[in-house]
């Protein structure tokens, strides 16, 4: 279990955190890893804060509980930083990735993340609007995650996005999503 990676996602309902938790898990699975992806279900209502989880491991994963001590926390909405303690249980040497216009030090000041925690920021909403045409930051932030943590490979991510979107979305939407991954991969600041 030494190489188990645990990711916790924070978002507001409707922003695609559940999809992102699955996208990352399934990308890893296509690369031969074992995975789990699960949302924390409550009363579903648009805009409410929610959590989702992803586990990735080269070995079968046998534990089935919520992730309390994540290696990585991803926040899809920076208005949550003041509402939810996104750093709760985050490992001291963990990574915090936030969709925001702020820089890392501003995020550190708001969240109180210890200096040992690596913080990365990316304006995934702006990227999504300019590539996909809508503020759905989940695909681009997966690209940022690939860059900052290496837990998934960015080429595998794009391959998976293309494979899973084909037949469901137009070529334009697929191209936009792929471009969003590239841009976030390049623009994330860590």
């Amino acid at each position: 279990m030494a190489q188990l990676t645990e990711i916790r996602w924070h978002a507001r309902a409707g922003q695609g955190a559940v999809t992102a938790s699955r996208l990352v898990a399934e990308t890893a699975m296509d690369d031969g890893q074992y995975m789990q992806a699960m949302p924390e279900y409550g009363a579903e209502r648009q805009g409410a804060p929610l959590k989702a989880y992803t586990r990735i491991s080269p070995e079968p994963i046998e534990i089935h509980n919520n992730i309390l001590h994540p290696d990585i926390v991803v926040v899809l909405d920076d208005t949550l930083l003041e509402v939810v303690n996104v750093c709760e249980g985050l490992k001291e040497t963990g990574t915090l990735i936030v969709n925001t216009r702020m820089d890392a030090e501003e995020v550190r000041a708001i969240t109180g993340a210890p200096a040992t925690v690596k913080i990365a920021t990316v304006d995934a909403s702006d990227i999504a609007i300019n590539t996909i045409g809508r503020d759905i930051p989940n695909t681009p932030i997966a690209g940022a995650l690939a860059k900052v943590t290496g837990v998934i490979n960015v080429e595998s991510l794009k391959k998976y996005v293309e494979k899973s979107f084909t037949g469901k979305f137009s070529d334009k939407v697929i191209a936009g999503n792929l471009a969003s991954v590239d841009r976030a991969y390049q623009e994330v600041r860590a």
Partner: peptide
Amino acid sequence: LDGFITSHALER
């Protein structure tokens, strides 16, 4: 199968 824990979580 256990509700949500098994019914809804995605696994390989």
